[in-house]
Design a binder for these strands. Structure first.
Length: 216
DNA sequence: CCCTGATTCGC
DNA sequence: GCGAATCAGG
């Protein structure tokens, strides 16, 4: 597989949504996790909470082939005791309390799948993405999808545009009448086949042939 | 061991 | 440019 424009877009999209390289590789198919990571870096997408690289601002000497063992000095203890301001504790009346004002910006930048936070050069506002009030697939696996187009219903005449994710209860295909000569209906052909515009002229949200990152 | 992302380096 | 191999932390 090669990195087509579409696949690169998907990679970016998923990467920025916080999906792991494995998930992305899985979704794209035909590429390894390493390929995804490598590509992501080459694209300049970078830095996202890596488990292996939390701190250490500068680290310039870990690789000469020689066998030097520079291990003399001890660890320079960074001076950073957490000052605990907040002296003027307001003598709170014993009455109703019931609310913690949303102040005191936590330095924690919640990150990870679903909570990815971009930290551009400008370091944006931290409106921590509110926990997606996601509801998992409702337990109604029958009548709801009774008329959905399943894999078994596919034929040459109906749109095969996938909706949802395979394996999920409501996964199905578009099922519309196809645009003659194409595997998709007219509408989805419009999604699937797009003129190659210069990147800058392209709209940001190129519809993905899947319902976005999997929600598990 | 499993996972993760980062980096290196031969192709 | 690509990605397997490797590294290294969780």
């Amino acid at each position: 597989m090669s990195w087509t424009d579409e696949r690169i877009d998907q990679l970016k999209s998923m990467w920025e949504k916080g999906m792991t390289a494995s998930q992305i590789a899985d979704e794209l198919g035909g590429v390894s996790r390493n390929a995804v990571i490598g590509k992501a870096h080459r694209l300049g997408l970078q830095s996202r909470p890596s488990p292996v690289k939390a701190a250490e601002p500068v680290k310039p000497a870990p690789k000469p082939a020689a066998e030097a063992k520079p291990k003399p000095a001890a660890a320079p203890p960074p001076p950073a005791p957490k000052p605990q301001p907040a002296p003027a504790a307001p003598p709170a009346p014993v009455a109703a309390e019931a609310e913690a004002p949303a102040r005191a910006e936590p330095q924690l930048r919640s990150v990870g799948p679903g909570g990815f936070v971009r930290q551009g050069p400008g370091d944006q506002q931290p409106p921590i993405p509110p926990a997606p009030p996601r509801r998992l697939v409702p337990a109604r696996p029958s009548p709801e999808i009774a008329d959905k187009t399943s894999l078994l219903d596919l034929n040459d005449r109906i749109c095969k545009w996938p909706l949802g994710h395979p394996g999920e209860p409501d996964f199905h295909f578009c099922g519309e009448k196809v645009n003659p000569g194409f595997p998709y209906c007219v509408q989805h052909c419009g999604h699937a086949y797009q003129a190659q515009l210069p990147r800058r002229d392209r709209r940001p949200p190129p519809p993905l042939p899947f319902g976005g990152p999997r929600v598990r």
